[in-house]
Design a protein around this nucleic acid. Structure first.
Lengths: 129, 129
DNA sequence: CGGCCACATCGATGTTTGTCAATATCGATG
DNA sequence: CATCGATATTGACAAACATCGATGTGGCCG
């Protein structure tokens, strides 16, 4: 699979209201943590996968460029000079974004057009509430 | 500097209403992109720096664990067994989160307590609207 | 069909990153 | 002060990643 979808958020497992102050006066430390409500390893992996896709300055620029383009779409021939990198590199970054489900690719004649996937961007925003 | 703060969002530079359909019927491609409204390289670097801090499964788990802890704080002695990695590794990840401004570190006696920084998490959510 | 253009893939390379063992620091306590 | 427990730092190493040049692929057009 290319785009795992089990995205977790930091807030959907609400802080334990029942995990209130332990009897003692906060002096103790180790052993007071409840691991069962927190994000599991698998969820964390899937979420990190999505975040890694956007945790790169070039890919952020690409997303921003696509968004500010007319029709919210852009092709490699426009994006390449805009970020100042080689064409293979830009193509690589666009592939990462595509595999993460953040953009779609559509071949129209000789050019490949890329568009944002709003729902996937919503997923990103939702991670941090 | 450890925590750059010039965070950019994908939406604050709104899509150009004035960059409407070019006269032709969408046949042309190259040269139709307006780079001046999009995210600049420096903003992209600063934003990517913050995103890199959370684009790791272990660090996501740590944030989630801290959040679901009583008092929204936790120490290394609790976090280490919870993620199943060595103590130096956990300490390293917590340092990354601290330098990104996502958590604060407070030494209380022998232990180091970590808390979330809500405003910084808001910054993250704001990137994607 | 033959060439050309936009784009994708491959292979190589230098850099960054996650991890651990070993060691150092820091604070409490006897 | 000597020691011990909790945490931080260092050094080393392997895996992952960003980048580019070279090459492959897929459509247009003469």
């Amino acid at each position: 699979m290319t785009a795992p979808k089990l995205i977790a958020t930091l807030t959907d497992s609400s802080p334990r209201a029942d995990a209130r102050a332990a009897d003692a006066g906060d002096v103790a430390c180790c052993g007071t943590l409840t691991t069962d409500v927190a994000m599991g390893r698998e969820q964390a992996e899937a979420t990190a996968y999505l975040l890694k896709a956007v945790a790169d300055p070039v890919r952020l620029q690409l997303l921003s460029l696509i968004r500010s383009s007319k029709g919210q779409e852009a092709c490699v021939c426009d994006l390449t000079p805009a970020v100042g990198l080689s064409q293979p590199t830009v193509s690589h970054h666009l592939k990462v974004l595509t595999e993460a489900g953040l953009v779609t690719r559509e071949r129209r004649g000789t050019w490949a057009w890329f568009r944002l996937v709003p729902s996937r961007l919503d997923d990103l925003a939702a991670i941090f509430r």
